[in-house]
Design a protein around this nucleic acid. Structure first.
Lengths: 231, 231
DNA sequence: CGATATGTTGAAGTTAATCAAATCTTGTGG
DNA sequence: CCACAAGATTTGATTAACTTCAACATATCG
């Protein structure tokens, strides 16, 4: 009887988005929560690797030690990220040290043994995980592309047009799935800038900005912005 | 006798970074190049999917058609990105339309049949691909995190400290793996800003900026910057 | 050497962040 | 149901950071 929190956490990982629930339960049996204090070490370089990890809360720093004892930071990860998959599946040993950077840091430890056994027993697991990961990859690649755009308006217009929209004809209604504060953060701008952009576009008559939705009244100028036309 | 260009292109994909060269050759046999003109359609939503694609040059737009014939852009991808893996491995049909957005757009088409056969025959392929993809995922997650940082100096300092560095003791020498122009682009800043930051840090005595390398003379102030200390 | 691409520097102009404060929501307890 | 507190959003004024534009310098290569 696996912990429902663990199942929920597994489902939220891009690794397992499209995995059969029964298989997921078997993976969940090999999982457990780990909570670390800030600065506490999770594993050391060279140790044999029997699991990989997903950060539920807090942050983790992966680093090597240089000749003079200087930390060489390889990655600095926060909630939502996962790590050590390749160590588990390909290398067998951790290639870096890992320490928690925040207090508290809560990790999901996903045991490798059930996972590797399932890879052998369930033919569809490999392709399903690869497909699932790739879908996530495509999103991230595009997110990187978009964050590289200098203009805040360009980023917002792109994001807005990509949101699932209900509505017929010209009037598209976009339900905002997060708070505006979180949207601003997602788009790497301040809430103030987001608010001002929405107001400006409303004054132009392009949109109607509501509390938790935006009605797009004419998508064309937004599309132009999204494609890099000067504001 | 697979086309060496195809092998090279496959190797450069995060999917196949750690795959046995002999397996890679068998995958390569199911690949071919596709070149499209701007606006040309690659596939339509609902068509059966027998391959996935990697963009070698140009760009591809993935979209659905809304009720009024309005394009709903799902992704806008450029060189280096790949897509339709999940369609191939999980769905069997394309969930979106795909058209080239640039002239010319050159794609590598990776046939699904050899891939799916290999998944069954080669036990290690699944875990190896998952591990490889995850490694790339970790990098991307962190890149997103970093691009969200407002300050250009913060981004550069982080990037610099994470580069593989040779050198003993305090003097770390970082060989620049790309042109400064490309580094600037990677970090979402202009070459001018990059140049000015390097010069400023050199005047502070923190680094020595050379043509294609940077010698870090004291990493501490850079680390402070990278951790978000005000400049 | 000359041509082209890459990198550097300076001045001017914009964008978006910051700071500060007002307004609006939402949830809670009385 | 209302008052209140905490949080979210909006607005305005200011400022700092970064881009843009233009010119120059420096490599790289045939």
């Amino acid at each position: 009887m696996p912990d429902p929190d663990i199942l929920e956490a597994l489902r939220s990982l891009p690794h397992f988005r499209m995995i059969d629930p029964r298989i997921l339960e078997r993976i969940a049996e090999g999982c457990r929560w780990r909570t670390l204090a800030a600065g506490e070490t999770l594993f050391l370089e060279g140790q044999p690797c029997r699991a990989f990890y997903a950060i539920h809360e807090g942050g983790v720093r992966l680093y090597r030690l240089g000749p003079e004892g200087r930390e060489h930071v390889v990655h600095n990860l926060r909630a939502g990220a996962s790590f050590a998959e390749a160590a588990l599946l390909s290398f067998g040993r951790f290639p870096v040290h890992a320490v928690a950077t925040e207090q508290p840091t809560k990790l999901l430890e996903i045991g490798g043994d059930p996972l590797l056994r399932l890879f052998r027993e369930e033919e569809r697991l490999g392709p399903a995980m690869v497909g699932s990961l790739c879908m996530h990859l495509v999103s991230l690649v595009e997110r990187v592309e978009e964050l590289s755009l200098a203009q805040a308006g360009e980023r917002l217009a792109r994001w807005l047009l990509r949101q699932p929209a209900s509505g017929k004809g010209q009037r598209l209604e976009v339900e905002l799935s997060m708070s505006k504060r979180d949207i601003a953060s997602h788009l790497a701008m301040t809430p103030e800038t987001l608010s001002r952009l929405l107001r400006k576009w409303q004054e132009q008559g392009w949109i109607e900005s509501r509390r938790s939705s935006v009605v797009i009244q004419s998508a064309d100028p937004l599309s132009a912005l999204a494609d890099g036309e000067p504001a």
